[in-house]
Nucleic acid binder design. Structure first.
Lengths: 317, 317
DNA sequence: CAGCTGCGTGCAATCGATTTCTGGCCGAAA
DNA sequence: TTTCGGCCAGAAATCGATTGCACGCAGCTG
């Protein structure tokens, strides 16, 4: 029989004789035949793969988000391939280029800030959803949490607890989460009477960065009595630094971290965090992508999810 | 000019006139031309993608391993796409099928135990490396740690610390890491004079499983005074259970967990673990895969890396 | 019984890049 | 001047599956 018939059987065309269908299926089973997806993709000029490009695979925030994406993707018939840019714009560009060359059906990206990668995506026809962070100059579907409000709440919480000299450790300039969380922090300070004076340390979004930033805050002339750390990995670094310097938390230093940490309630003192609805964020992003694939045109949506303060011991003076 | 010429330029053939090369390159830049990798892969019948199939993306062990894989892959000119089976054999089978259909250049897999997925891989010509866990009935390159020795050391460490009634929480039967770690535990017990009596709880390799297993151990008539937990996520669950039941660690219950945890030294009491060389494990697996792609035939290698006890407070009576 | 409809199958074009083959042109050697 | 290589560019085949089109056959209608 012809390849055409086999193809029709395997793709569920109903114009095939049932006897023929049976013959094809047994032959497929016996031969262990597996259609070549590369050829299929070429002919159909579409694929069933999504590229999910995240900036740190070691960050529980992203892994939880990916779970949400995966669950929706599976249901919609897509497979998710995960790409870890490790906050490295060059790696991000490599992965974006691969995703475009491979004609992926869609891309979900937490940008590490590469304008070049963003431009490639925007210039291409591939549907894109940005998560966690705004895509540089990108008019695309976006799912983020309300970073500014979350940071404001966290900072106000420290003020309410009686801390007076509150520092902020945040991420790289130009990364939207870093900038917005900083803005929320400063907003909370200046809402005070009298306005609090900001004390800011910028670093990368990684553990070592948090450690170093905390160390420099500790040795600064205006040593703070509390710190708001704008991401979970930096918070771990800060905590480690405080432990190394034998600074008592929360007695000598109140701590609130952005992003929930799976073991926040297991450490002593337990850690106050600003929790994000990670799984829901992933689901939402995946749903937007499904919609965008169905309807390529149309105004991009931006979904803002709430962040929620989880007050624990590290911020209780 | 013809497509053939463009192809030659882009693939670095040296039989092209320099003037022509320049024309092609400027045209490529101006048009934003990007070769269709799907078509290229079809024609060449090979790709530059590796599928890395892991069983839990939320487990720091795997994410650290992936980092090692990625670094070697990038250097060798491959891109890594990560697939998360979430310990679900059905998902694993889906991803294996996708990897084979997509003609991936190689597969690195931490099996969740699906015999079907293993068979598909073994029947196919695609180069495979198993990590962390043996592939069911699979004669393939494998990188593991010395699970039995690690478990034996951990158990002996508890015995040496003076604990007398030591339980083991391990993973599903048939998953090699679960079985070997259990074997190391029983070996250490029976090496005692008089031999210790094993007390075993089997569950899945997840946090909730660890919690439940610990809870049942606590209420057992032969309540243990120490526990060896065979994986990091289950250890977290066990710790949470102990905290909920207000069991003092290490006073009332000594704890050692297999797998390092990034914050093992931040919790109080800090956690004794059996650390694995995760990054190195990933690098090794990737190197084996590169070799296997170059030399498809030949006897599969098995690399066993050492695990190392990190004694901290949770096991100090 | 001619003609029409519809079903099931095969033929052949197609996707876009790579690669082998072919041929034109030029220079060098006889 | 002729012939032979060598070099370079284009023509065409190729990868494997999908899909529009055509054809043959059966059943039905007028």
């Amino acid at each position: 029989m012809s390849a055409a018939t086999v193809s029709r059987v395997l793709n569920g065309a109903r114009t095939v004789d049932p006897a023929m269908v049976a013959r094809v299926l047994t032959a497929v089973r016996e031969l262990g035949y597996r259609p070549n997806a590369v050829a299929r993709n070429l002919r159909r000029s579409r694929t069933t793969l999504w590229a999910v490009i995240i900036s740190d695979i070691g960050n529980p925030f992203f892994t939880a988000t990916v779970r949400g994406i995966e669950d929706v993707a599976q249901q919609a018939g897509y497979s998710v391939v995960l790409c870890n840019s490790d906050e490295d714009p060059a790696k991000e560009e490599t992965y974006v280029a691969a995703a475009l060359s491979e004609q992926m059906a869609g891309v979900i990206i937490a940008s590490s800030g590469s304008a070049k990668a963003a431009k490639s995506l925007l210039d291409s026809p591939v549907p894109v959803v940005a998560i966690d962070r705004q895509l540089p100059r990108g008019e695309v579907d976006t799912v983020v949490v309300d970073n500014e409000a979350g940071a404001r709440t966290a900072t106000r919480h420290l003020l309410d607890a009686g801390y007076r000299r509150i520092a902020c450790v945040t991420g790289p300039e130009g990364v939207s989460t870093a900038d917005l969380r900083l803005r929320g922090y400063t907003a909370a300070l200046s809402a005070q009477q009298p306005p609090g004076e900001p004390l800011i340390a910028r670093t990368d979004f990684r553990e070592q960065g948090g450690y170093d930033a905390m160390a420099s805050l500790l040795s600064s002339p205006e040593r703070p009595d509390a710190v708001f750390v704008a991401n979970n990995l930096m918070t771990v670094g800060a905590l480690r630094c405080l432990a190394d310097h034998e600074v008592r938390v929360p007695g000598e230093m109140g701590v609130v971290g952005f992003d929930e940490i799976p073991w926040a309630d297991l450490v002593r003192p337990s850690l106050t965090t600003v929790a994000q609805p990670t799984y829901e964020l992933g689901r939402m992003a995946a749903r937007l992508l499904v919609d965008r694939i169905a309807t390529p045109a149309g105004r991009p949506a931006t979904v803002v999810l709430p962040a929620e303060l989880r007050a624990r011991q590290s911020s209780a003076r």
